[in-house]
Amino acid sequence: MTRHCSFIIPVLNEAPHIASVLQTLAERFPEAQRIVVDGGSTDATVAQALPHCTQLLLGARGRAAQMNLGARVASGDYLLFLHADSVPDFDMQQLTACLHGRPQWGFCRLRLSGRQPVFRLLEWAINRRSSLSGIGTGDQMLLLRRDVFERNQGFATLPLMEDVELCARLRQQARPRVLPLTVETSSRRWEQRGVARTVLQMWALRLGFALGVAPAHLSRAYYGRQL
């Protein structure tokens, strides 16, 4: 029997992408919940998402808070946290096979949408790093059993690195299941900011987080403003 899964997607001004992502989820995971949590979009995100999701919530801006809100109304045995520009490259049957044995938590492998060879190198590095460290990111579709998420009180309300922080806590309890499944994520961040600049920035942010730099300072460095 297929266990019920709930996709939780935090969004902010994602009108160009959200409808196609939700349509793909509906096709590949017809029995799963598709919960969209908007953090105050000023574009047509809500209008684009509404016909294609099973539930749309309006909440305070902040990815951690939005995902926690979505989790509170989700009914699935597994909570699947997915970014608005990421699409699972598999279906419910493949996912169900990977959830045999009821792993506590895990994440998928990453594939970037860009076609240039440099993106294949980035994919390899990110997947290798996450596999060795046991730290995944939202780009890789974090998945948690509901009881594990609730026991750990969800995401810490940080303006950045909320996924890294949660994985670090979960890793102390159990190693993640790195699923042999791929999630394709938009490479727009690297394309817009430049590959070298983005990689160096992410290394610096992770180092700063590990050294205890306040997440608010890291957020300003990443976004250029306070969220």
Rank of each mutant, 00 (worst) to 15 (best):
residue 94 Q to R: 14
residue 66 Q to K: 09
residue 145 R to D: 03
residue 131 S to T: 05
residue 117 P to I: 15
residue 17 H to R: 10
residue 57 L to E: 09
residue 99 L to Y: 02
residue 133 S to F: 05
residue 43 D to E: 12
residue 144 L to H: 01
residue 23 Q to S: 12
residue 13 N to Y: 00
residue 12 L to Q: 13
residue 15 A to P: 04
residue 73 V to Q: 11
residue 39 G to Y: 01
residue 11 V to S: 10
residue 100 H to I: 01
residue 120 R to F: 04
residue 53 C to F: 11
residue 39 G to K: 02
residue 44 A to V: 03
residue 73 V to F: 12
residue 8 I to V: 12
residue 127 N to E: 06
residue 111 R to P: 05
residue 79 L to C: 08
residue 78 Y to I: 10
residue 50 L to C: 09
residue 136 G to Y: 01
residue 130 S to G: 09
residue 85 D to T: 10
residue 113 S to H: 06
residue 138 G to D: 09
residue 25 L to A: 14
residue 46 V to W: 02
residue 140 Q to V: 01
residue 36 V to R: 09
residue 8 I to M: 02
residue 72 R to C: 14
residue 68 N to G: 14
residue 27 E to Y: 00
residue 73 V to S: 14
residue 147 D to A: 14
residue 77 D to M: 02
residue 119 F to D: 13
residue 139 D to M: 10
residue 51 P to R: 01
residue 89 D to M: 12
residue 45 T to L: 02
residue 90 F to Y: 11
residue 20 S to I: 07
residue 121 L to R: 13
residue 137 T to Y: 07
residue 146 R to K: 15
residue 21 V to W: 03
residue 50 L to P: 00
residue 130 S to R: 12
residue 70 G to E: 04
residue 4 H to Q: 14
residue 77 D to F: 00
residue 106 G to W: 03
residue 50 L to Q: 15
residue 63 R to V: 04
residue 76 G to W: 00
residue 82 L to Y: 07
residue 85 D to R: 05
residue 25 L to N: 13
residue 109 R to Q: 15
residue 131 S to E: 12
residue 31 E to I: 04
residue 63 R to W: 02
residue 23 Q to N: 08
residue 20 S to C: 08
residue 75 S to C: 10
residue 93 Q to F: 07
residue 15 A to S: 15
residue 111 R to H: 14
residue 101 G to N: 11
residue 78 Y to S: 09
residue 4 H to S: 12
residue 16 P to G: 13
residue 123 E to V: 12
residue 17 H to V: 06
residue 113 S to P: 07
residue 139 D to Q: 11
residue 97 A to H: 10
residue 19 A to Q: 11
residue 26 A to G: 14
residue 72 R to Y: 06
residue 113 S to R: 08
residue 85 D to P: 01
residue 122 L to F: 03
residue 32 A to R: 05
residue 71 A to K: 02
residue 57 L to Y: 02
residue 65 A to E: 13
residue 89 D to T: 02
residue 146 R to A: 13
residue 108 C to F: 12
residue 65 A to N: 11
residue 51 P to A: 06
residue 82 L to F: 08
residue 106 G to D: 06
residue 64 A to N: 06
residue 60 A to I: 12
residue 8 I to A: 07
residue 67 M to G: 10
residue 114 G to S: 15
residue 101 G to W: 09
residue 93 Q to Y: 03
residue 45 T to M: 04
residue 100 H to M: 04
